[in-house]
């Protein structure tokens, strides 16, 4: 069976640009080497300017995304405002740590823009909620080693939205091509202060 983190496969990456952030994921869902679905997105909209990426055990991806949809809806009703990415990151962290001794097998990534300060924000987590604040990029999933390599090579600071899309997409597509458990197309979100662009990449279908 191996690790629960690599039973279903999948990859996710987020990057910071100039006044924008990007987050992208692949679309594969598998059972070990067998592909079950090629339309299993791993990025979930939290609100207009915050997105959550989840890789790992697919059942927990679904459970955890549902959990945060619930928590964020309750937050919005109670506070009459949208949750900011930094606040959401802390919510993710505390929620995962609640399951410290029986964790959800997911590696979350948060990307968004803080509407109050206008600042881009990205971060990643381990499965028990330790936050990895990063200035440049965050990777997660079975292709994370490959993504580290691609991002390390392609990333440069202060990219505009279009250049960021190119860099992010190339990093993801090249990384998943070297991972047998990821691929089958991708979703790419480019988040600006008042605009979000979602693109679907076909990618290699093998």
């Amino acid at each position: 069976m191996g690790s629960p983190f690599s039973m279903n496969g999948g990859a996710c990456v987020a990057m910071v640009g100039k006044d924008c952030v990007g987050i992208a994921c692949d679309l594969r869902l598998g059972m070990q080497a067998l592909t079950v679905s090629n339309n299993f997105p791993k990025i979930f909209g939290i609100n207009d300017s915050v997105y959550l990426g989840l890789t790992g055990l697919a059942t927990d991806v679904a459970t955890v995304s549902d959990l945060f949809r619930f928590k964020v809806n309750m937050y919005r009703l109670r506070e009459e405002r949208n949750i900011s990415p930094d606040t959401f990151a802390n919510l993710v962290s505390t929620s995962l740590y609640e399951r410290r001794f029986g964790p959800y097998f997911v590696s979350p990534v948060v990307a968004g823009i803080n509407q109050t300060s206008g600042k881009p924000f990205i971060c990643g987590f381990d499965s028990i909620g330790c936050i990895d604040f990063a200035k440049d990029f965050i990777v997660s999933g079975t292709a994370s080693d490959q993504l580290f390599g691609m991002c390390e090579g392609l990333y440069e600071p202060d990219l505009g939205p279009d250049e960021l899309f190119e860099t992010l997409s190339q990093a993801l597509l090249s990384a998943v091509d070297r991972d047998a458990l990821s691929g089958w197309g991708a979703h790419v979100y480019i988040i600006e202060k008042d605009k979000v662009t979602k693109r679907l990449l076909k990618g290699r279908q093998d």
């Binding site: 109670r78 606040t87 802390n90 919510l91 505390t94």
Partner: peptide, 15 residues
């Protein structure tokens, strides 16, 4: 604060 790592807004505390 233990959940969001920030203090509650006034209205939330009042509630």
């Amino acid at each position: 604060k233990r959940v969001y790592n920030e203090y509650p807004p006034t209205r939330i505390l009042v509630q």
